[in-house]
Computed example of a mutant assay.
Amino acid sequence: MNRIAVYCGSATPADPRYIDLAGQVGRTLAARGIGVVYGGGRLGLMGALAKGALDAGGEVIGVIPEALVGGEVANTDCTELHVVANMHQRKQAFTDLSDGFLTIPGGVGTMDELWEAVSWAQLGYHAKPVGLLNALGFYDHLLAFNRHMIETGFVRQAHAGIIIAGDALDPLLDLMAGHEPHTPIFAMKASDL
């Protein structure tokens, strides 16, 4: 993997461990020679992620909608900063520019990005690994809900492994690097669905 799209929050939670985590993710990716593609912001976890990667000599490509540039949240320190018209173009750019996806703690926007990456993988719009860093137990409930969707049959067994989850970054990145694509819905027959 040459580049990973990292999905994370633009908020700064009261617990400083989240900001520290984002900075460490950026530094680790840079140390492994993996470029960061992210939301292009300078605030919260986004800003800490970019700073961590840039300070470690890594490549950081930001993709930000025009509406957020005017609010002075764009990170002009990025290696490249792509300004796009809307959120749909932003998420398409994440997919086009990266070799995989990594979600760290975040809010509604982060969830939107994660689930779109999962949905697109399930359908067959991409065959890239979708990693979820469950640091500090942040995603325990989300992972339980995902298991519930699998157990009740709303996620097919063929797609049960799309989310590659781990609570430590280096082993998670190793799992993502060894990702084996599944059979997407577009390649299935009606009898398989």
Rank of each mutant, 00 (worst) to 15 (best):
N75A: 09
L175P: 00
L143E: 03
G70M: 06
H88A: 10
G39Y: 05
N146F: 15
G47R: 03
D140S: 10
V69R: 14
Q92C: 06
S119E: 06
G62K: 09
G178E: 12
N146S: 12
P184I: 03
R27H: 00
G106I: 06
E151R: 11
A74E: 11
L193P: 03
H82F: 12
P105H: 00
Q122A: 13
W115C: 15
A56Q: 03
W120A: 14
V73R: 10
L132R: 03
A56R: 04
D192E: 15
F154M: 13
D96K: 12
S10A: 15
T152P: 04
G71C: 09
A168K: 15
T110S: 14
H179S: 05
G26W: 10
A160G: 15
G52C: 09
I162D: 02
G23N: 06
Q24S: 14
A158T: 12
L43Q: 14
I163P: 10
A93P: 00
D170S: 13
H159I: 02
R32F: 04
A53G: 09
L68H: 10
P171K: 11
G58N: 02
C8L: 05
P105N: 04
G166R: 07
C78H: 08
T95M: 15
G52P: 01
E59D: 12
E72L: 13
G153V: 03
L68P: 00
L29A: 07
A127Q: 15
E80G: 02
A177N: 07
A135M: 07
G26A: 12
R27M: 11
M188V: 03
A74I: 06
T110C: 07
E80S: 13
V108P: 00
C78Q: 02
R3G: 00
Q122G: 01
M149D: 00
M87C: 09
A53P: 05
Q24C: 08
I104C: 06
R17N: 14
A117W: 04
A135H: 13
A93I: 05
V25W: 10
G107R: 05
G137K: 04
H82A: 02
V73H: 11
V73D: 00
Q92A: 15
Q24H: 14
K91T: 01
P171W: 09
T110P: 02
G62Q: 08
N86L: 03
N146A: 13
A53D: 07
L21W: 04
P105V: 02
A168G: 05
H182T: 15
A168P: 00
H126A: 08
F145T: 11
G9V: 08
R27F: 01
R90S: 03
A5Q: 10
Y38R: 01
P13M: 03
M1P: 05
L142V: 14
D167P: 09
D77Y: 01
Q24I: 04
G124W: 05
L68N: 04
V83Y: 08
V130F: 04
D167A: 14
C8W: 03
V73Y: 12
A177Y: 05
Q24M: 11
H182S: 13
Q157S: 14
W120F: 15
A11K: 15
R32V: 05
D170H: 12
L21K: 11
G137D: 10
P65D: 04
V73L: 15
M188C: 13
G35I: 06
